[in-house]
Amino acid sequence: MSPQPSSAEKIAAVEAEMRLLGEMASRLTKACQQKCVPSDYREAELNKGESVCLDRCAAKFFDVHMKVSEQLQQESQSRGGGGGFGFGG
């Protein structure tokens, strides 16, 4: 009836946002752990090199995230809507 989102909708939106952020964080962790930290675990602490690598890795992960997002938006505009992904519907 009203143009206002209902409480349920507001809560669902915040929840979806949290879930997306959580998933992104977990993907970032997975990607950067693989790039920056060897898996032999001879040390319990992050050394200097690993720490710096993680910071840069996080920055680059965000950059790639933004870049892919922009590229998909451009593609979907130039194709007029639906996009090139036939899957998922």
């Binding site: 752990q33 032999d40 992050l46 910071d55």
Partner: peptide, 28 residues
């Protein structure tokens, strides 16, 4: 011993990436 160090290192790693994540997120 490897498992113990792995957990500690992964927690440090999560902690650090989480800080970067929050900074970047706020910036964006």
């Amino acid at each position: 011993g490897c498992v113990t160090r792995c957990v500690q290192k992964q927690m440090a790693l999560s902690q650090r990436l989480s800080e970067r994540f929050q900074e970047q997120n706020a910036a964006i």
